[in-house]
């Protein structure tokens, strides 16, 4: 009605009212823009989705932190345990003449015999090292089953089990749980001792005065009975020896360097 009157008169009684509807639309548009902007900002702040700049190398740094470094730390701990077990293996085997279990040649008064007359119980060093090491390691890991190999004074252990880190669905980072440790000892020393033992038996098996013969033939690091305070004891031509490491190997054990000493016995009977 107002617009019709206005058209007739050419004048408007309420000129402002004519403009008001147009202004309201534009005002409302800007009013809504403001509201939309506020909501957009609120959404950007509160939304869990990350907006803005992404930090560089996030994946790589997370990988290094959570997987690589973590794995290195675990390996450091495992290597130390393997080193300790390796050292214990050296001393434990040496005290038992290199055998984990009593061989067919038998044992007498704590000494493991390397021969029975002319028959020698040949030592399979690698097998014994494997058995003794795994036996000791099982105290800390019941499922321990390493396959050991030697390289000079280093002991290398391989295992099928992997250490899995940073598992995300089907994706994971795994490391081999094997080790390589320097035990500062070479198991090949057993072969030297075996050769010397054979020589002793060959040269003294027919000697009537066994002690005199052995005194002449045996190297200085072969001691009768014990390494300290030697004591010759013969039981039916069986003699126990304590042999000090020819290479003077000493293994770090519980804060001390313990010299490797082999406890073994030889049978000088002819049968």
């Amino acid at each position: 009605m107002i617009q019709e009157d206005e058209k007739k008169d050419g004048k408007s009684i309420f000129p402002n009212l004519l403009i008001l509807p147009k202004r309201s639309k534009k005002g409302a548009l800007f009013h809504w823009i403001g509201i939309v902007v506020i909501f957009a900002l609120a959404f950007a702040v509160l939304s869990p989705t990350e907006f803005g700049v992404k930090s560089k190398g996030t994946w790589q740094l997370d990988f290094l932190h959570n997987d690589f470094i973590e794995a290195e730390k675990q390996l450091t701990g495992r290597d130390q345990l393997a080193l300790e077990m390796g050292r214990q293996t050296v001393l434990s085997l040496a005290s038992k003449g290199g055998f984990t279990d009593t061989p067919s040649c038998g044992s007498l008064e704590g000494a493991t015999y390397w021969n029975e007359g002319t028959d020698f119980c040949f030592l399979n060093v690698d097998k014994e090292v494997n058995e003794q090491f795994n036996l000791l390691y099982k105290k800390y890991d019941k499922n321990a089953s390493f396959t050991l190999s030697r390289q000079g004074e280093e002991l290398i252990g391989k295992r099928d089990t992997e250490i899995i880190l940073g598992q995300k669905g089907a994706q994971y980072y795994s490391i081999n749980s094997g080790f390589r440790v320097k035990i500062d000892y070479d198991f090949d020393e057993y072969f030297t001792l075996q050769d010397e033992a054979k020589k002793l038996v060959d040269e003294c098996k027919s000697a009537s005065q066994l002690q005199d013969c052995l005194d002449k033939v045996k190297p200085s690091y072969w001691k009768f009975g014990r390494c300290e305070n030697e004591l010759f004891l013969e039981t039916g031509r069986k003699v126990a020896f304590c042999v000090k490491s020819p290479q003077e190997y000493a293994v770090f054990e519980n804060g001390k360097f313990v010299q490797v000493q082999y406890g073994l016995g030889l049978d000088f009977s002819m049968g």
Binding site: I69, K73, G77, Q80, L81, E84, M85, Q88, N254, G255
Partner: peptide
């Protein structure tokens, strides 16, 4: 800076 575990067999 960092921490790690060591097994002390003795």
């Amino acid at each position: 800076k960092g921490a790690l575990y060591l097994t002390n067999v003795h």
